[in-house]
Simulated assay, not measured.
Amino acid sequence: MVGDSVREDFSGGSARSFPVVMPDANAEQVTALAVDISALTDVSQVNTSTGSFADGTKVAEPEAAAQRFSDGTGSYLDVVSSAEPVSPAGEQLVANIRGLEAGAPYLVAGPAADLVDSKKAIFGLVPLALILIAVATFVLLFLMTGSVLIPIKAIVLNVLSLGATFGAMVWVFQDGNGAELLNFTPTGTLNTTIPILMFCIAFGLSMDYEVFLLSRIKEEHDRTGDTTAAVAIGLQKTGRIMTAAAAVLAVTFIAFATSQVTFIKLMGLGLTIAILMDATLVRGVLVPAFMRLAGEANWWAPPWLRRLHRRFGLSEAASEATPVVVRV
């Protein structure tokens, strides 16, 4: 609302300014960069110590107030744009400005540049992090179950659950559906840090429920060798506990949705949806249905992995005691 007021009530363009700083540049270098920036798409005007520029040309000589753009060693360029800073167009403009060649070093600041740099810092290593999480999950579940299919199933179902949660968050907080009910003002964007935080918490809780359910199913399958009965008994033994645990966490997180801070409201509602969906639809329906349909294929693994599991696998069952021969 503050940004809207500045844009509508003031004509200086400060709400859509893209500051550019040249720490060590002379007048010729400042002018050259100002000319290049003013020729970019979505740039309305560039004001600096050497004058005002628009459409790649100088349109006004510097006035007395223009001295504020220079301190004698460096200069500041006020880039006024028609693009909203926190938007794809604003991010593209930052990239276009940073891609220009200049005779001296320069830096781009402002909300748009801050968003670009934040996204790069947060999401730059996300692919590597996802690979590490997937590999660690696969290895641990394989060591527990001795199966190749079950870890893959667990990762896929967790991703589907989280994808549905993120979709709901976009529908509510980015598109503004239910804004009046939840008492927030939609901005058309989501806080950059919240999806990563939600992924870490929700994926960890989902895998916790997965291990809890699978351990009971695996225990029963080892005892009877019947997958169908093992799934039914495993769900029966863990269903009430998982439902109660999910309900406790859901009540805790839904309390965050009453906050007057939008990103806390986003995290609270998002985690509530993720937990309830995982404990009911995923663990109560999809996991048992998948394992029932897969049958004995659930426990398949190539021979060399079976040998690896027999040697290093994790098991709750006590190992058989080795007979001790006592000579009298």
Rank of each mutant, 00 (worst) to 15 (best):
K265M: 07
S38E: 03
F199M: 14
E220S: 06
V211I: 13
D36P: 00
A250G: 07
L276G: 04
A65G: 08
R68K: 10
V287T: 00
W299G: 05
E296L: 05
M267H: 03
A32G: 15
T258R: 08
I275D: 01
I122S: 06
I273D: 01
L141Y: 01
I122P: 03
G167H: 04
Y76Q: 10
T238W: 01
G163D: 06
F184H: 00
G110S: 07
V86Y: 06
I194G: 08
Q260N: 11
S87R: 08
A257G: 12
Q174C: 03
S11C: 08
V287F: 02
T243R: 13
Q174P: 00
S75R: 02
T57A: 10
S5Y: 09
M1K: 06
Q29D: 15
K119T: 12
P85E: 12
A65Q: 14
L308G: 04
P127Y: 05
I217H: 00
D208P: 05
P111E: 06
I201A: 11
F69N: 11
L125T: 12
A15W: 11
A34P: 02
F263I: 05
V30Y: 00
A244P: 02
L125R: 10
V261S: 05
A32I: 02
V86F: 07
A121P: 04
N26E: 09
L213D: 00
R327S: 14
R68D: 09
P111S: 07
F69R: 07
T57C: 03
W300D: 11
L182W: 09
F10H: 14
T280C: 11
L141G: 00
M267W: 04
A297G: 09
A168E: 05
M277C: 08
L132C: 12
G188Q: 10
L149Y: 11
S38G: 04
S87K: 06
M22D: 03
F166V: 13
P288Q: 00
K237E: 09
L132A: 15
A112H: 03
L162W: 04
V282M: 14
M267G: 09
D36F: 00
A244G: 13
P85V: 10
D208Q: 12
L249I: 08
S49H: 13
A34W: 00
A25Q: 02
I194R: 12
L160Y: 02
N158I: 02
V59E: 05
R7F: 09
V156S: 06
F263M: 07
T31K: 14
G124P: 06
G176C: 08
S70Y: 08
G13I: 04
G284D: 02
T193E: 13
R216P: 01
V172G: 02
V126K: 10
L40M: 10
R68W: 05
T243C: 07
R327L: 11
L249R: 01
V94P: 01
L271Y: 03
P302R: 07
I122A: 11
V135F: 10
W304G: 06
T187L: 13
V30R: 08
V35Q: 12
S17R: 14
S17I: 13
R307A: 14
A232V: 10
A202E: 01
N47E: 13
N47H: 08
D114N: 13
G204T: 11
F212T: 05
A64D: 13
E84M: 12
E101D: 15
S161H: 02
K218R: 15
G239S: 14
A66L: 03
P288D: 02
